[in-house]
Design a protein around this nucleic acid. Structure first.
Lengths: 241, 241
DNA sequence: AATCGCATATTGTTGAACAATCATGTGACC
DNA sequence: GGTCACATGATTGTTCAACAATATGCGATT
């Protein structure tokens, strides 16, 4: 699975007959009624989150429009959405580039998660259905770990924490958390070749869910704080090397 | 200062020779280099936040483009930004409307503020410069109250809490807080005729700043929680009537 | 080797056009 | 008189073509 290198994609491919963009960006199938810009944004979002388009890569308008068969305006509209998601950076008169996450990004991510997730735990009561759902997700994560499915493990982990925040019952907070997790995926997609990062934290999720189900709020919060702080340190350490 | 009524703006004005849009939307001055869509968004944002365009009002594309002298594409780009800010709602194939805040919105706002602001207080240390800045803002609010400048009071209040969140040092959180406060202004701009709502809370801000400056984190947090909860109840009560 | 200037490519914005969808009003029918 | 169907008009969604403004790269000049 070759993923192409940053920057030099804008220039012609060395000797490839087929342009590299063709690999990931198929023409939009004539779908029913979803707005074209959001479908375009979805395609790009998927490709970026999956690490098929690496951080730092420039996304040239004409290349993509011709591949996708949409107008430049439509693509630009999609770019705006991706920009709002924090997946791409818009550099004036230069184009949009897949955001390159930094270690400062990682620190900010965990600062936000600390506030959001502990906030959710502290300010809301978790009904049995909610904790049950969380436990369900951890079960899936454990199965994925046993099966060696790293991707599914990561997804389960993210869903767990997304659900945690969802308990605060705020679409704005949900959106922010999605944004944060998307940037998180960007960190992984970028340089992290060691993807069983999540493995160590499945157990942490299990314990957290269990504490919440027994309504041990204080302990849950303390556990969560330690969880996040150590995850941050762990991730930063891995990125250093 | 007449503010025009929702909905029926799309139809012709009763007997006015000048179209109502002309009142607030002057043609864009040929400014230097800021992107046209963001300038358009700024104009509309200002008009909406100031209550000149009331919640529920439809924003027709051609009317505004002709008044502002920009292309439809540019306006649509601006609409996307306003939509991301939560100031307008995009109804498919119908157009964009100024968001109509509900009491559920108010509850969500305070749920978010509770998490964000207490989170900022708990997870960050407030250096003297920061607390000094907060106190400075409360001074301005008190002066505004004495001068009877309700608008300035509200702005100072909002800036105070924005600064509070800013201590968490996260641009994403800053953006979210801006979004929340923008929606707050929408609540006021809408039906709230009683604008000295903020007056009661200037004292609360003063006390909070003082507690923070003395590094009384626990008390500050407790005070903040009570502050927010009572403000929410107060606001909801006023909206009911 | 470094700098300047110019040709070229890409982005930012506009205008016109058309398809698709929604809103309106008219008339037929009960 | 009221209600439904339908035709009409208006508005939004999208594309195409064009041009201005800015950045990029290359070659000439020193």
């Amino acid at each position: 699975m070759p993923s192409f290198t940053p920057q030099d994609l804008a220039s012609d491919p060395p000797a490839a007959a087929t342009d590299i963009w063709d690999q990931w960006l198929a023409p939009l199938e004539a779908a029913d009624h979803a707005y074209v810009p959001v479908r375009v944004a979805d395609v790009l979002r998927r490709a970026i989150s999956a690490g098929q388009i690496l951080p730092g890569t420039k996304l040239p308008e004409v290349k993509i429009t011709t591949r996708l068969g949409v107008s430049r305006h439509t693509l630009r509209s999609a770019f705006q959405m991706l920009s709002a998601d924090g997946l791409v950076d818009r550099r004036p008169n230069r184009g949009v580039f897949v955001h390159v996450p930094t270690s400062e990004d990682v620190r900010e991510i965990y600062r936000i998660r600390l506030i959001l997730e502990t906030g959710a735990v502290r300010t809301t009561v978790f009904p049995p259905e909610a904790t049950q759902q969380l436990i369900q997700i951890t079960r899936g994560a454990e199965r994925a770990r046993e099966a060696g499915d790293v991707l599914a493990m990561g997804q389960a982990n993210q869903e767990f924490h997304q659900r945690l925040v969802a308990q605060a019952r705020s679409s704005m907070l949900d959106e922010l958390m999605s944004k944060v997790l998307a940037r998180m995926r960007l960190v992984f997609a970028g340089r992290l070749g060691d993807p069983d990062f999540h493995a160590a934290y499945v157990a942490g999720n299990v314990k957290l869910a269990e504490l919440l189900s027994r309504n041990r709020r204080e302990e849950a919060e303390e556990h969560l704080v330690n969880y996040l702080l150590s995850a941050e340190q762990d991730l930063l350490r891995r990125l250093k090397t």
